[in-house]
Amino acid sequence: MNGKSVSEPGAPLERDRHAVMRVWLRKLPERTLMVFIAHRVEGKAYAEIAAELGIGEWRVRWHMRKAIRHILKIGKPYRDAFAALDPVSQQIMELAWDGLPGDRIALRLGLTSHEVETRMAAALVALHKATTL
């Protein structure tokens, strides 16, 4: 990799993961997105969100269920593509997403850095194709 840990902002895998999430979330209706961000990102309670938006708590729950159903539905091709990866590529991607740099992944799995990078690139291409179709 480029020497950055994947957990650093701007690291390639972290940018890719955030880009995918932004695309998924942009497809939500505006109010549902506002509720989802307020609860999951900002950590606000349903009652607080309801008061801020002038809606009932039941409506906040409804928006959260809608957001989660949407994320599960659009995440299915991604999960299927991940499951289709060979076990070593799955391990590489999981370790990378946990913030382990490529050279440390190579050491942990007994692979060369080149093999880790090659498998990671192929996995990212497969995951990207699955999420853009």
Rank of each mutant, 00 (worst) to 15 (best):
L85M: 15
E52N: 06
I71P: 05
G56C: 06
L33E: 13
D103P: 04
E48Q: 04
A11K: 00
E42Q: 12
E14Y: 02
A123V: 06
D80H: 07
E48A: 12
P77L: 06
R22G: 13
A38W: 00
Q91C: 02
K27S: 15
R26L: 08
I68T: 12
A130N: 07
N2R: 07
L127Y: 13
I71M: 01
E42F: 09
A130I: 13
P77G: 11
T112V: 08
R26T: 05
A96H: 01
S89C: 08
L72W: 04
D16K: 05
R79I: 03
H63V: 04
T131V: 08
R17C: 01
D16M: 12
D80G: 06
L133N: 03
D86K: 05
A106L: 08
H39S: 05
A121T: 00
K4D: 10
A45N: 00
M93E: 08
V41K: 13
K76C: 04
P12H: 13
I74M: 15
E94P: 01
T118V: 08
A47D: 06
L111T: 11
I37D: 09
M21C: 03
D98E: 09
P12Y: 10
D16Q: 12
P9E: 12
R79W: 02
H39G: 02
F36W: 00
A19C: 02
A130F: 12
P29D: 05
G10A: 11
A84Y: 07
M64A: 04
R31T: 15
P9G: 04
S7P: 14
L13E: 03
L85F: 14
V60E: 00
V116Y: 07
A38N: 11
Q90V: 01
G43L: 00
V88Y: 07
R22I: 15
R119H: 03
L127I: 13
K129T: 07
A121M: 00
E48W: 02
